[in-house]
Computed example of a mutant assay.
Amino acid sequence: MQFDEETLSRLAAIGWRVDAPLPDGTDPAWRAARVVVQHRNGYVLNDGSDEFPAQPAPRFLRRRAAPEDRPAVGDFVLVDAATPAVIHAVLPRRTTLARAAAGERYARQIIATNIDTAFVLMGLDGDFNPRRIERYLLLLAGSGVRPVIVLTKADFLADAAMHAEIAALRAQIPQEVELHAMNVKRAPMVAPLLRHLQRGDTAVLLGSSGAGKSTLTNTLLGHARQATGAVREHDSRGRHTTTYRALITLPSGGCLIDTPGMRELKLTGEEDLAEASFDDVEALALECRFGDCAHGAEPGCAVRAALESGALDPARWDSYRKLRGELGVANESLAAQLERKAGAKVQTRALGKRLVDKYGRR
């Protein structure tokens, strides 16, 4: 079973790209829609014509259901005709952007799905922090999502100071990563972003509170839909004016997902430092005389030589070491979680077998 032409035309308006076969067991009466808002008590969907409330089917709410298998903002889903509609299936995702949830217990938290571009926003004021850009690029590496760095509040710095900040950041990130500095309140300045927001495109906004995500959304829409607020004077950080993720269709034909500011950006353990902005550091480490070089007092250490000559920025090296250590901890947490799940499945099967042996099948 596949979507008919009328359905495909409607879904294309909300970012559908792939005409793939529907899952086995699909009820012909079900219709397709996209998750545009996720609340604690339910969802809001858009079928390309209308928005309507929906609830997840009971199987998504079971304790053993993996959080990443539940519907998320950006998902295309199949729903029935009930009121409110019930989500019965999540269609295959072409991309998934996730982070580790805040807290000590490892859990993978989906930010958004089926997205093509991530606009990483950071203000050219007291919020400017290249190290945080590196973290975002690492989170995006390998996800299939294209990063675009948007430095907002370009009017805060004199031209010479702004160019120096941008040049320093440009030297530290991969050349293929797009970078813009702009005042996002002005429509002519945000025009370069529109090439990523045409019919069938979906982008997500990432950045801390006060970076200008809601302001950019309003400028792209051409009217004030998202609430905006002032930032604190001492650190240029803002309050959470956006409190939940929401997918918005734009006049340009694309879809934009606005997200709350992220206080903590934890790695999932699946990222690759070499695919992010640290390929040069990884290449240096391969030039060391010893394969297990700790980059301390070992002879022939290429990393230490680069630090001493000034070819490698010490702050960048410290950031790399910190992220590498965090990635190792996240990898261990992920492996432990998978091991626990595998053990639980074995125990469940063993219990089931004992019950069948004792009472027979019913």
Rank of each mutant, 00 (worst) to 15 (best):
M1Q: 10
L8C: 05
A13G: 14
A20V: 08
A29R: 00
A33N: 11
V36A: 09
V44C: 13
D47A: 02
D47H: 02
D50A: 12
P56C: 00
A57W: 11
R64C: 01
A72G: 01
D80V: 09
A82V: 03
P84I: 05
T96E: 11
L97C: 04
A107H: 11
I110S: 04
A118F: 10
D127E: 07
N129Q: 14
Y136H: 12
R146A: 08
P147G: 03
P147Q: 09
L151C: 10
K153F: 06
A164L: 06
A167Y: 11
Q175C: 06
H180D: 10
A181Y: 15
A181L: 14
V184S: 08
R186N: 13
A191I: 00
A191P: 00
L194E: 14
L205A: 09
L205D: 14
L206H: 13
A211C: 01
K213P: 05
T219Q: 08
L220G: 07
Q226K: 02
T228W: 00
G229Y: 06
G229V: 00
T241P: 05
T241M: 07
T243N: 11
T249S: 11
T249I: 13
I257L: 10
L265R: 06
L267Y: 14
T268M: 12
L273E: 06
F278L: 01
L286H: 14
E287I: 08
C293I: 09
G300K: 03
A306C: 06
L312Y: 07
R316D: 15
D318W: 06
D318V: 07
R321E: 11
L323A: 12
G328S: 15
A330P: 06
E332D: 08
L334R: 12
L334C: 01
L334E: 02
A335D: 02
A342H: 07
G343D: 04
T348V: 02
A350T: 11
R354V: 15
R361L: 14
